[in-house]
Design a binder for these strands. Structure first.
Length: 265
DNA sequence: AAAAAACACAACCGCCTTCAC
DNA sequence: AGTGAAGGCGGTTGTGTTTTT
């Protein structure tokens, strides 16, 4: 049997993407939309494997990507989400508009992870507030069962400055010039409409938390399938501590009930 | 000023799940 | 129901950049 490799390496370009390759990929997707990654390189005339194209698009070329300058708020959210979700980078990224799983993963591995470790070693209070988490991430399963597209995000404050999730044209070339944030914020809406996955958004007025829910009712938790806190499964219910964790996560520090600052699902 | 070490991050890899047939 | 392809994920590696010695 044996699977055919998803990516034949012969005759393929590897390594860093050039500005020209980026251009080809972007214009192809602008014209034809995302998807069909397997055949995209051939159709677009790129000597890259489909996976590579997908990654390049999702992580760097897609409109709305924010690069660098992870704010303290974002850091804090990442830490809290990581405490709850473990290394589920795509889920975590789904709550940080404009951030990609790869970026968050890198940031965690190079910076935040160490910082958290340092802090947890230094602060006993922290350890008590969030015991076991850092040392033994109970919620972690090494592989996702299924984490589909980025979770939908409800922007509840459209009038707010476009610090989060406001699509902007950031088809930044490879390692070249990065106009980054400034350009991001000032940039006009993307000239093209990129085909996005159809996602169901909750209407704003339906934003509410009912902490007495089934696992299965929580879209973003359902992939855990019973690996939260030692075995909560679909149909099971959270116990008090888990509810506390979720509440803290969703409501933010102080639990003031202001969901607006968070991406929702 | 040069070399070494540390850091940051883009890209690749292999595995898993889902989907279409 | 079974199988292969496609898509998606997290882990890891390679390399360029920055900081330290």
């Amino acid at each position: 049997m044996g699977r055919k490799p998803s990516c034949s390496k012969e005759g393929m370009n590897r390594g860093a993407w050039t500005a020209m390759e980026d251009g080809i990929l972007v214009s192809y997707i602008q014209k034809h939309g995302e998807g069909k990654w397997g055949s995209l390189p051939r159709r677009a005339g790129l000597k890259r494997c489909g996976k590579s194209c997908r990654l390049r698009w999702l992580n760097y070329l897609r409109p709305g990507i924010k690069r660098g300058n992870i704010s303290e708020d974002e850091e804090e959210l990442i830490i809290r989400l990581h405490r709850l979700l473990g290394n589920r980078w795509s889920l975590i990224a789904g709550r940080l508009p404009g951030r990609t799983d790869n970026e968050i993963k890198n940031y965690w591995n190079t910076t935040l992870g160490k910082k958290v470790l340092r802090n947890s070693g230094r602060s006993k209070e922290d350890n008590q507030a969030a015991p076991e988490q850092e040392a033994s991430p109970v919620a972690v399963r090494s592989k996702a069962l299924r984490c589909t597209a980025r979770l939908p995000v409800v922007q509840v404050q459209p009038a707010a400055p476009a610090s989060h999730g406001c699509p902007s044209e950031t088809a930044v070339g490879d390692d070249g010039v990065r106009e980054e944030q400034a350009a991001d914020e000032a940039a006009p809406a993307p000239a093209v409409e990129v085909q996005q996955k159809q996602l169901d958004f909750l209407p704003e007025d339906e934003l509410s938390i009912d902490l007495d829910f089934d696992m299965g009712e929580l879209g973003f938790l359902s992939p855990w399938r019973g690996e939260v806190g030692g075995g909560v499964g679909p149909g099971d219910r959270f116990d008090g501590d888990e509810v506390d964790d979720l509440e803290a996560l969703l409501l933010g520090p102080g639990g003031d009930g202001n969901l607006h600052e968070f991406a929702w699902f």
